[in-house]
Design a protein around this nucleic acid. Sequence first.
DNA 1: GAATTCATTTGCCATTTGGCAAAAAGCAAT
DNA 2: ATTGCTTTTTGCCAAATGGCAAATGAATTC
Lengths: 189, 189
Amino acid sequence: MKAFIDYILQFGDLNQQQIDLITKKAEEMTLPKDEYFSEAGKIAQQVGFVLEGVIRVCYYNNKGEEITKYFIDENNLVVDLESFNNDICSNAYVQAVTDCKLLFFSKKDWKELLDIIIPWQAIVNKIVSRVLIQKVERRSPLVSEDATTRYRMFLKIYPNVINRIPLSYVASYLGITQSSLSRIRKNIR
Amino acid sequence: MKAFIDYILQFGDLNQQQIDLITKKAEEMTLPKDEYFSEAGKIAQQVGFVLEGVIRVCYYNNKGEEITKYFIDENNLVVDLESFNNDICSNAYVQAVTDCKLLFFSKKDWKELLDIIIPWQAIVNKIVSRVLIQKVERRSPLVSEDATTRYRMFLKIYPNVINRIPLSYVASYLGITQSSLSRIRKNIR
DNA sequence: GAATTCATTTGCCATTTGGCAAAAAGCAAT
DNA sequence: ATTGCTTTTTGCCAAATGGCAAATGAATTC
């Protein structure tokens, strides 16, 4: 829980009473490997925060290939924003890649907190724009680089993830085949 | 100006007085082809709205290649958010690709409006998250597709842009060379 | 520790894309 | 029309990546 408090206080100040209100609403949960935090075709109902483990967000493209859009590791927020905010069906699966421990807020509690803690609104907005900008900045440069550079970028962005997840997920994140990724790893050593 | 009002009212309601306050702060400007709306190394000072023309956001990667990150065409907001919000130097150039007509707000005016028009805050937050999510959703899928599919995606996303801008910009947006793009176009016909 | 299952690497060859330079096409000014 | 300039297309070959199947390795269960 401390990790979460530290995280949100990066984005603005709250007094102890406000922090208490927020933490009182936070629940802890475990999400076993391969299970879903939220699913395509459904409306996201929760905001989560990863205490332990790795999550991935993925979808299926027109050819039916499974594409990993990004990973979320420790001390990061996990929420399908478009679905959660606008109450529309998601097109992505949010799935535990390892056993995970999460904090989470129900949509009802989350909105209630926004109503009763005015400075919380500004903090959430900063977090949201930070998280989204980060996603653009991480994913976008992959388009213009070759496979080796992409893999190096992955290692930089997610330094603590590579040894905990299947290579096939990394390959689908990078937009290359698993065999190519394997060969690239051989060359880098 | 009407285009801008229509745009913002999609995201929430404002009364006439509030609309007047906002429009009074909006200025019009022309941005000739190739000139910059904001530049790498500087702090973004304006929020813009494209009335006419096409803008692109680009940067230089480690190899010195110029990469187009995205385009912004008519009736869309143009702002280097991370730089504008956090007063940090941008790493991207925001450049007119054709002669442009823009509305714009200075940072001072923009912040003032946020202070005095309470519902405007919520609208801006919705716009920001919409714009950012759109950037992720547009750019991200390119990573996993082949060059022909990428080009088709570009055409879908920016249907009114292809005939107005140099192919080299499109190629750099798609992460392929201009000659490859040219060959792809030949095959598609 | 053998057997089973799953993840990763490798080999082979086909396909796609890149790099470079020249040719062709389009455009604007004279 | 002609010239000069920029953009786009092409040709040629090299390099990168994909597709598929088999082999290897690692982890798990009995």
